[in-house]
Design a protein around this nucleic acid. Sequence first.
DNA 1: AATAATACATCAATGGGTTGCCATAAATCC
DNA 2: GGATTTATGGCAACCCATTGATGTATTATT
Lengths: 163, 163
Amino acid sequence: MSKAKPAVATGEILEDPAFEVANRVFFRLYQCSNLMHKNGTRFMADYGSTTQQWAVLGALARPRVRTQGMSVKDLIEFLLLSRQNLTAVLDRLEARGWVERVKDPEDGRSRLIRLTAKGEKTWAQMLNTIRAFYEAALDGFSLEDQILLYRLLDRMKDKLSTV
Amino acid sequence: MSKAKPAVATGEILEDPAFEVANRVFFRLYQCSNLMHKNGTRFMADYGSTTQQWAVLGALARPRVRTQGMSVKDLIEFLLLSRQNLTAVLDRLEARGWVERVKDPEDGRSRLIRLTAKGEKTWAQMLNTIRAFYEAALDGFSLEDQILLYRLLDRMKDKLSTV
DNA sequence: AATAATACATCAATGGGTTGCCATAAATCC
DNA sequence: GGATTTATGGCAACCCATTGATGTATTATT
């Protein structure tokens, strides 16, 4: 069944290419995510923020959202997080005075999460650091490379959502 | 979400394409990682394992490693995790009887982590579930797509390591 | 032989992620 | 008006991840 086996690494690939390639994809995804959080959070040390918190702030800083805010429900759908986890992150952001929970005038059950003035100011400063991080982390990536990577991850996200 | 106004999203892009594209890349990375862990771990519910634990088992199940084991130091470098975190994961794997710590005969300071017989048997069964997960999560991805994605993530990993 | 570096472990604190269950208030449905 | 659904929050348990500081055994250096 098996001929003389070559080197280990290539040997694995040859035996089951589909599995080995997929395995590498997800392993790199795992490593990239850990590195992104570790070094991204290190970049934000001056603000005491984390990458996850900046994801929330980024969602709230979008033009359309900035004025009226965003419900917890919509934030959950946007960030793909569990309610319990998001609540804890929002608590920390609220404790720092960066976001506030206001009652939705149109639906008393809903809370609209909004950037505070302090939050907006902090976010504006953070943006410079985030920019620097993106440039360093994607150094050598052409815009085409980045778009390609985004599209592949986007497709993967959809598949992972329905798996 | 109610009015049809595509101007916002594209407007942001036009204002600062480099930033917006990078932002999307890392946001998708964040989402994909969370989804991978959530649904990957759900797939492994029968074994009570997590994606992180299967990464460790996968490292230990490689042909060259399988017999002699792997030092904690090498595992840290391979998985890119902190020692404190890896110790905890290994403790759980050891408590389940899937791995064991043996003294390195060549260096008394070092511990070699090895799959136990029970660990090997469990891993062999897990592989079927992992295969199914990979196929579902990469459904619609040609082998070329997967290799492309792997290479992009691999480059990104290198950049993120030195950022 | 004394010193320094290495490999591992432990304890502590903080933050992020999940699931599951329960509680409360407000909107909706009948 | 009463029952149900929806949106949020709280509590608990578990796991994963980081940093920082401390300790201990072993190897390497000098």
